[in-house]
Simulated assay, not measured.
Amino acid sequence: MLELYHSPISTCSQKVRLVLAEKGLDWKSNLIVFTRGDHLTEDYLKLNPNGVVPTLIDDSDPIIDSSVINEYLEDVYPEVPVRPRDAKGTARMRAWRQFIDEVPTPAIRYPSFNAYFVPIWQKLSEEEFAAYARRLPLRKHFYGHMGRGGFDKQAIDEALDKLRQTLERMEKALVTGPWLAGDQYTLADVSITPTVVRMEDLGLGNMWSDLPGVTDWYRRIQARPNFSTAYMPGSRDLGPSC
């Protein structure tokens, strides 16, 4: 059986759970609790040296990085496809996925971390926070930039600008097809869904109120059966700071 190390609130975990649900695959859930430091234990770092979620285990072999995991799931379990069958369609889908990985996925972390993690880090001393950040394999500099008080207005404004750019690009694409890469629901739609959901949860849903294509796309995304399955309890709970 497939196993997934994941966190309910992790947007990257949500991305993989959407594909697992879309394909109707059975999997064992291994929850990672960030505040407990599960992602930095010796055992977990052996599976995922990046110290992040998610990690998929298939036949004892770990597969890491959410985009890689989703392509792997499509390669191994293609019966319910989330990737075009033709090469050009796949290229268009991957161009979207690459853009999403490089632009909106990092951008949403800035308001998300301010909302969810800053109330936790403020309870630590500067020394405790610095010691935690130094343990992070990938994001110690990101945490250093954030600090215990969160990201400043300039960083947040830049992140929101990138998110708006993404929404406008989506609007243009949705003129020619019901989904981002055309007629088929694909990994492009999967990849951006957690970011749009997180924006709504952060009170940023007005950012697409003037974009009818995105508004309709999001309505249809939420109506898909995989959505309610992937968004398990706790997935949208960002705490009292929201």
Results as ranks from 00 to 15, higher is better:
residue 230 A to N: 02
residue 135 R to N: 06
residue 182 G to Q: 03
residue 41 T to M: 14
residue 189 D to L: 01
residue 69 I to A: 09
residue 116 Y to H: 12
residue 224 R to G: 10
residue 83 R to C: 11
residue 122 Q to D: 04
residue 226 N to A: 15
residue 169 R to D: 08
residue 36 R to K: 13
residue 78 P to F: 04
residue 232 M to G: 10
residue 144 G to F: 10
residue 143 Y to L: 15
residue 233 P to N: 13
residue 155 A to I: 07
residue 15 K to R: 14
residue 68 V to D: 00
residue 116 Y to N: 12
residue 115 A to L: 10
residue 171 E to Y: 02
residue 117 F to L: 15
residue 25 L to S: 04
residue 205 G to T: 08
residue 197 V to S: 07
residue 119 P to W: 06
residue 202 L to M: 14
residue 204 L to D: 13
residue 99 F to D: 06
residue 190 V to N: 07
residue 171 E to V: 14
residue 193 T to R: 08
residue 120 I to N: 10
residue 125 S to I: 08
residue 46 K to Q: 11
residue 72 Y to S: 13
residue 183 D to R: 11
residue 169 R to S: 08
residue 121 W to G: 06
residue 50 N to M: 15
residue 224 R to F: 02
residue 101 D to T: 15
residue 84 P to H: 09
residue 226 N to R: 14
residue 124 L to A: 12
residue 97 R to H: 10
residue 171 E to L: 06
residue 49 P to L: 11
residue 34 F to Y: 12
residue 163 L to Q: 04
residue 123 K to R: 08
residue 95 A to M: 12
residue 8 P to A: 09
residue 202 L to E: 07
residue 188 A to W: 04
residue 194 P to C: 06
residue 90 T to I: 14
residue 147 G to V: 02
residue 194 P to M: 05
residue 119 P to N: 00
residue 186 T to G: 05
residue 217 W to G: 02
residue 117 F to Y: 14
residue 220 R to F: 07
residue 12 C to K: 14
residue 78 P to Q: 03
residue 202 L to G: 13
residue 152 D to H: 10
residue 217 W to S: 00
residue 56 L to C: 09
residue 122 Q to G: 13
residue 223 A to E: 15
residue 126 E to F: 07
residue 79 E to K: 11
residue 193 T to D: 06
residue 182 G to F: 12
residue 8 P to K: 03
residue 198 R to A: 06
residue 94 R to W: 01
residue 49 P to V: 11
residue 223 A to S: 15
residue 11 T to E: 05
residue 91 A to P: 05
residue 215 T to G: 07
residue 79 E to Q: 15
residue 159 A to N: 11
residue 151 F to R: 01
residue 191 S to R: 02
residue 216 D to K: 09
residue 73 L to W: 06
residue 25 L to K: 04
residue 6 H to E: 11
residue 205 G to Q: 08
residue 16 V to W: 00
residue 242 C to N: 15
residue 8 P to L: 05
residue 161 D to H: 15
residue 190 V to H: 06
residue 26 D to K: 00
residue 10 S to P: 00
residue 17 R to E: 01
residue 93 M to F: 09
residue 130 A to T: 13
residue 100 I to F: 15
residue 239 G to N: 13
residue 155 A to F: 06
residue 188 A to K: 01
residue 127 E to I: 02
residue 60 S to V: 08
residue 224 R to E: 03
residue 17 R to G: 00
residue 119 P to S: 01
residue 93 M to P: 08
residue 12 C to M: 13
residue 33 V to G: 08
residue 56 L to I: 02
residue 42 E to W: 06
residue 207 M to V: 05
residue 230 A to Q: 02
residue 179 W to D: 05
residue 242 C to Y: 11
residue 69 I to C: 10
residue 71 E to K: 01
residue 89 G to N: 09
residue 208 W to F: 00
residue 134 R to Q: 15
residue 151 F to G: 07
residue 52 V to Q: 06
residue 229 T to W: 03
residue 193 T to I: 12
residue 61 D to R: 09
residue 28 K to C: 03
residue 39 H to W: 06
residue 195 T to E: 07
